[in-house]
Design a protein around this nucleic acid. Structure first.
Lengths: 188, 188
DNA sequence: TCCGATGGCTAGCAGCCGTTAGCCGATGAA
DNA sequence: TTCATCGGCTAACGGCTGCTAGCCATCGGA
């Protein structure tokens, strides 16, 4: 693993624990065994670290979603796979999800707009999934928008309470959350 | 409205928008028409502003929950009322909820521990509600813990996407989210 | 063997932060 | 009218921040 990668990992952990504004370049340096100024031999700026972190997170999530919904036309199965990917991603990338949700404000334009755009795209994709199910008579919800937000929130909540060392394995959590999502749209 | 209250309101808005570390005392002052140092005639410190904000938020939420579940023994009705209070609170206090979730790290001990304790108490109360329903054969979930987290996440998500000016009224959102919660625990 | 590139280091700049000290006009009770 | 209190203000302190400049050891290829 290159030094650049180690720096990004350290930055992620610190941003999650202390926040972007609450993290100093000296701390990030210390986490990888060098001094603050030496970081600039590897990264352009502190802001750059955040930008890259947030855009790659959203890109990864979008890519996983696309792969998940490809290969079947059945609305129930499509939603099941999308939720599986969504929850699994949030279980595996809790810190990225937390930083992504709470540090949007620290992102400077135009990157803020870019990331917000990707997030809106992800939300639309989920909403469309719910709408397809409703149109096919498989889901029964008064508002597809509200239902899709609810499903997204289920997964994003993991950032707060999920722990790998916890009593529930990743697969158990993923399975139950998927079940919750299907019940929620009235397909359970 | 006293100056002290105006300061707290301004601080809440700024903490939500820019984060605790990203907000300066001069900005809080400017929001109420005075200079930064003058704030110290009304508040003890910046940290104090955050402490008070977070503890009163949790106290308010706990009190609302207690009132909601008092007066009936029916597990379904108890959960319905608790979710109603939970969602309504988060719709009305979006900024408090957002700050409460993302600025726990900026809280200094012993206040951090106190607030975490209150949050844990709130989570336990909800879990107990689910467990009661399961014990009474009215709810059907594999894990009460996971189900209660899911319900809590439903409401907390509002902090991100709910807007008063949106197309859905508070009552509509509250009603649908309550419905989602009941479906989720298999009581719909 | 040379030498450029790489990647550490320290010093330091320019600016901002929370907070304190101390000043002063307005206000209202005695 | 007097005078203490209140609540503004500016100046300033001590400390920290992101980042740049510039120095130097190491090391791999020519």
């Amino acid at each position: 693993m290159g030094t650049g990668t180690a720096i990004r990992v350290a930055a992620l952990g610190l941003f999650a624990a202390r926040g972007y504004e609450g993290t100093t370049m000296a701390e990030i340096g210390a986490a990888v065994g060098i001094r603050g100024p030496s970081l600039y031999k590897h990264v352009a700026s502190k802001q750059d670290l955040l930008v890259e972190l947030m855009t790659t997170t959203m890109d990864g999530l979008l890519e996983l979603h696309r792969r998940a919904v490809t290969g079947t036309d059945d609305p129930v199965e499509r939603l099941r796979r999308a939720v599986d990917a969504h929850v699994r991603f949030h279980a595996r990338h809790r810190m990225e999800a937390f930083v992504g949700a709470s540090e949007m404000r620290s992102l400077v334009e135009p990157h803020r707009g870019t990331v917000l755009g990707k997030r809106a795209e992800y939300e639309r994709a989920f909403r469309r999934l719910v709408e397809e199910g409703v149109a096919a008579g498989r889901f029964h919800v008064p508002s597809a928008r509200l239902a899709s937000y609810a499903i997204l929130d289920l997964g994003m909540g993991l950032a707060t309470w999920y722990r790998e060392e916890g009593e529930l394995s990743e697969n158990e959590v993923v399975w139950q959350q998927t079940e919750f999502a299907l019940r929620l749209v009235g397909a359970g």
